[in-house]
Design a protein around this nucleic acid. Structure first.
Lengths: 122, 122
DNA sequence: CGGAATCCGACAGGATACTG
DNA sequence: CAGTATCCTGTCGGATTCCG
């Protein structure tokens, strides 16, 4: 999952490749979904909602999402510092896609798991 | 992207984590989408349609999708051997999600790219 | 033709320590 | 609090070779 690439090398216009190179990593979709839970969220709240993300990966993921115009980052010049993250309109337009994926998973995951079991046995 | 895990260790019931652990890798979505192009597809045709996939990764990806009940594999006892792959009904029910993702990408990728440019400069 | 097996490099991502 | 900066490891996936 080469998130670094701005465009896919061989197929710069393939939507699947380009979208996967952005949100197909381990954390992006999870961060977007978590952010969709409230209008604005601070760094450490975000981290508490995704307990097993390291702060490095949270930072890296947020920066990448920000570069893609999916997340807005607002820094308040206070002590202690406060940084608030929120979804951009562009990200909000992506939410239905994510939701439909989640809905699909909710309906099919149990069956998938039992299929896995059978394929392990047989 | 730990595709090996049957369930996510910390959140076995989180749909996002489980779905991502399956189709969030480099090739799965691309293979599913390619297969959706025709009712049945042979191994080497599939490979020709995804020129930069190695035959190892095509095999691995197809096996994983088969285990999840997303791809059906039919072997014909001929010489030379023939193996045909097709989407299961479960996979077909996932196609709308994939399509909406692609559609979103089609509408937003250009803007994302230009945002990237600006964030590189500024 | 459609794989399986092996070797191997690159890099995503975790752990830890430090800072404004 | 919200990060950076290193270091280090696991694994993903490419290249190659061999097989029914």
């Amino acid at each position: 999952m080469a998130k670094i690439e701005i465009k896919d090398a061989l197929f710069p216009d393939c939507p699947i490749r380009n979208i996967l190179s952005r949100i197909g990593d381990k954390w992006s979709l999870l961060v977007l979904y978590t952010l969709s839970g409230s209008s604005v969220m601070r760094f450490n709240v975000l981290q508490k909602n995704i307990p097993d993300i390291s702060q490095k990966m949270l930072t890296v993921t947020l920066r990448a999402l920000e570069e893609d115009g999916l997340v807005k980052r607002v820094i308040y010049a206070e002590v202690p510092p406060r940084v608030e993250y929120s979804l951009t309109d562009r990200a909000k337009s992506l939410l239905p896609c994510i939701d439909s994926l989640i809905a699909w998973a909710g309906e099919n995951m149990a069956a998938i798991l039992s299929d896995r079991m059978r394929s392990k046995v047989g």
